[in-house]
C-alpha cells in the first residue's frame, strides 16, 4: 500500500523539483516548486505525519508561494531575462560545487546516520494520542525553549519588515 503510493509521489517530487531549475519562465518555475511542496505533503501523509503535511501545504504552498508568485508577477521578469549574462567559468564552477554536494550527501546516506535509533513515538502510539496532540505536547513541554526562541526570531523579522517599509512611524 505504502509503496503503491510512495513511488508515484516520489517521481512527481523529483521531476517537479528539477523542473524548477529547468523552466525558463519564472512563473512556471514557481508553479513546479508549488507542485513539489504539495507532493512532499503527500509523502508526509505516507509517514503518518498528517499535521506536518497540512502545515506544509498551508504555510509553504498556501502562503509563501503565493507571495513568490505575487512578486514575480509584479516585477515582470521577462525583460530581465534577456539581459542575463553568462560568465565563462559559471558552468565549470557549477559542476564542481554540485559534484561536491553529491559526495557529501552520498557519504551521509551511505554512513547510515539518517536511520538513527527509534524514538518512543511509534505509529500506533501517535494514532492513539492523535497527531496534533502529540506534537503540541512535545512542543510546549520538552521543546518550549527552542519554540519560544523561534517565535522571538520571527517577531524580530516582522518588526524589521515594518521598520523598513514604513518611512515614518
Amino acid at each position: 500500500m505504502t509503496a503503491f503510493f510512495f513511488f508515484p509521489i516520489a517521481i512527481v517530487v523529483l521531476i517537479s523539483a528539477s523542473l524548477v531549475i529547468f523552466f525558463r519562465n519564472p512563473v512556471h518555475s514557481a508553479l513546479s516548486l508549488l507542485l513539489t511542496f504539495f507532493s512532499l505533503a503527500g509523502l508526509y501523509i505516507l509517514l503518518n505525519a498528517q499535521f506536518v503535511a497540512a502545515i506544509q501545504v498551508i504555510v509553504y504552498a498556501g502562503a509563501i508561494m503565493v507571495l513568490f508568485l505575487f512578486v514575480i508577477m509584479l516585477l515582470n521578469l521577462d525583460k530581465v531575462k534577456k539581459e542575463r549574462e553568462r560568465h565563462p567559468l559559471q558552468k565549470a564552477f557549477g559542476i564542481l560545487i554540485a559534484s561536491l554536494l553529491l559526495v557529501v550527501l552520498g557519504s551521509v546516506i551511505a554512513s547510515g546516520i539518517l536511520y538513527g535509533t527509534k524514538g518512543i513515538y511509534t505509529v500506533e502510539k501517535v494514532a492513539a494520542i492523535g497527531n496534533t496532540k502529540a506534537i503540541a505536547g512535545l512542543l510546549f513541554t520538552d521543546w518550549i525553549l527552542p519554540f519560544e526562541i523561534t517565535s522571538i526570531l520571527l517577531l524580530a523579522a516582522i518588526v524589521g519588515a515594518i521598520v523598513l517599509s514604513k518611512k515614518e512611524l
Binding site: 499535521f51 504552498a61 498556501g62
Partner: peptide, 15 residues
C-alpha cells in the same frame, strides 16, 4: 483527524 487544517490547506490552494 486534522479536518480543519485540511480545509485551510485546500482553500489556501484555491487562490
Amino acid at each position: 483527524n486534522i479536518g480543519i487544517l485540511y480545509i485551510f490547506a485546500i482553500s489556501s490552494l484555491g487562490i
